[in-house]
Amino acid sequence: MLRLGRSVRDAIVEHARRDHPDEACGIVAGPAGSDTAVRFIAMLNAERSMTGYRFEGDEWRRVYLELDDRDEEPVVIYHSHTATEAFPSRTDVNRAAEYATMLPDPHYVLVSTRAPETTEFRSFRIVDGVVTEEPVEIVDDDTDPVQSYKFGHTPTSVVYDCSAGATGAAGPAGSADA
């Protein structure tokens, strides 16, 4: 299972919407070995493409060294599909097998922006070429006062609205503030 703060989930969705129709990509970092994804970092897509992404090398080097200095690692690697479903493509699966030799087994979050009103948001583990979807639990994170204010009125009901919207998809309540 992947647990994410709501502000992190919203930041990923907002990045995907902003870069649409190009694919957006990035990471959520956390303390090494903790499997806890807390720090959202949007990355430049060097491909600037509707069908592919690649972390821009110079930015990635700086981000990676900073993570390493802080004893963090990429817990989540996310990217968007802008015309297809939020499911790992053949390329994604092949690449994941290659990363396995260089990255600690990350959660792969896929966002689809193919529908303008709803955003598919799903998470997968990809091990030895086998794709396994995992549940995503969105939790309140009170670290961002602006975020708390936005959702402060009825935070609990917003949570349930989102979950009920459709498996993992952000419903109108989730995207209203985007």
């Binding site: 694919e23 992404y53 990676y64 990255l103």
Partner: peptide, 12 residues
Amino acid sequence: VTILPAVAGGAR
């Protein structure tokens, strides 16, 4: 010398 994973993928 710095060695990093390259990260890439996409819909196709």
